[in-house]
Design a protein around this nucleic acid. Structure first.
Lengths: 224, 224
DNA sequence: TAGATTGTTAATCGATTAACAATC
DNA sequence: TAGATTGTTAATCGATTAACAATC
């Protein structure tokens, strides 16, 4: 903490530069790497070592962490367990987040059955589909509800987080219902850009786009 | 093309600034939006209109496209069909790319059955798993092979592109085999950073990390 | 103490945006 | 012609990296 801050303590904290979104996006990668280190029994790590594991520069790691505080010791590095807990706290992972999953096709089922979410603080707590054959059925201990009930159920359960795994042509309607229900963060697998209010966060997973950004380079190789 | 180029034509082309990777990553989004416009019967679009659809500035679109040539008409905008074909050509989508899919669990099955890849120039042409119960079985018209055969089959089929959908602890081994087989681009769903030679492109899809970068903001809202 | 590594500042690098002449 | 929009340059903005005093 900088002693020359011209504000009182509280104001000083408020005036700390807020971390850019690129930094927030890297924190989960740091956390994940630290989890592996912990499993391996490594108790201390330098920014250099951590960086080599995830192909990030040591300077970037130190700069990123500095937005949130001082977590290391000069000459030593970072205590793996402590830093992991700090980052998890920053990311809000000291609590479990209930999430809605909309769209129980092949992808939706894969998401529902994936252990990675639950073990990392994200619990699928409500599932929705528009298919009459699926509505009412159970999966992973949850009843599949109609998409018509999204807003009421999501509101009742105070769900803030949702995952959309429906075809593109349904995604905007689903997003609208989720927002009405009070959802503030959406992960969408649908290949469209969702229009949502400013206070709602949306991130996309778009495997086709990702692959297409690599065929660009493959096509260049073919030429030469 | 700049007339004041001090090099001969060929050298001049070589010295055109090569587009940064961020630009390459946006091209598939432009292409996708243009496909929708084409479906809607829109024949012409301005950078402004296109930008509004995908939340990108008009200046950015024009700048991005300028790395590859001149595709628009002053006062008019872009011919949707022509621009789409140009971008698809740039991305190498004027040909079909055979791809290997490794890991036929719930996620792998969802990927195999997903129409979006095939309709957009990516054909899953070989499938692999390590589970004896799955090896030899058929899915979407393809026999599932053993991961032991990755390098030989991938080489025989001249496959350059692969999708990894195996658990994290198997992913590095799978990647190594793919690289031995001649794969140059990998999309990985496994939650580890792969170590590959410089000439191999790797992109990651990491839903848990994506969600964790949003719980950060959700946690901040709770506070206030 | 000497060596190592942090946290932070300043320099560099690269990407985005604004502005406008060219031109349809 | 007048209005619209491109392609491109220059200005701005923001992110990354290098460097180093502080300090374990």
């Amino acid at each position: 903490m900088n002693g020359s801050c011209i504000f009182g303590l509280e104001e000083c904290v408020e005036h700390l530069e807020s971390p850019p979104d690129v930094v927030i996006k890297r924190l989960p990668l740091y956390a994940r790497s630290l989890r592996y280190l912990l499993q391996e029994g490594v108790s201390s790590v330098s920014s250099q070592e951590l960086g080599e594991r995830i192909n990030v520069t040591a300077a970037q790691i130190r700069k990123d962490l500095s937005y949130f505080g001082e977590f290391g010791k000069q000459g030593i590095g970072y205590d793996v367990e402590k830093l992991l807990h700090q980052i998890e706290r920053i990311l809000g992972l000291n609590q479990e987040w209930p999430a809605a999953l909309v769209g129980i096709g092949h992808l939706g089922e894969a998401i529902a059955r994936y252990e990675g979410f639950r073990t990392q603080g994200i619990r699928i707590s409500a599932m929705f589909d528009s298919d009459q054959h699926k509505i009412g059925q159970e999966m992973t201990g949850l009843v599949i509800h109609s998409v018509d009930q999204i807003d009421t159920i999501v509101r009742e359960m105070a769900i803030r987080l949702a995952i959309i795994a429906v075809p593109g042509n349904f995604a905007q309607d689903v997003a609208d219902r989720l927002v009405v229900g009070g959802v503030r963060a959406i992960l969408s697998y649908a290949p469209i850009v969702l229009q949502v209010p400013d206070h709602v966060w949306v991130r996309y997973i778009d495997p086709v786009a990702v692959v297409h950004s690599m065929t660009y380079y493959l096509a260049r190789e073919e030429e030469s």
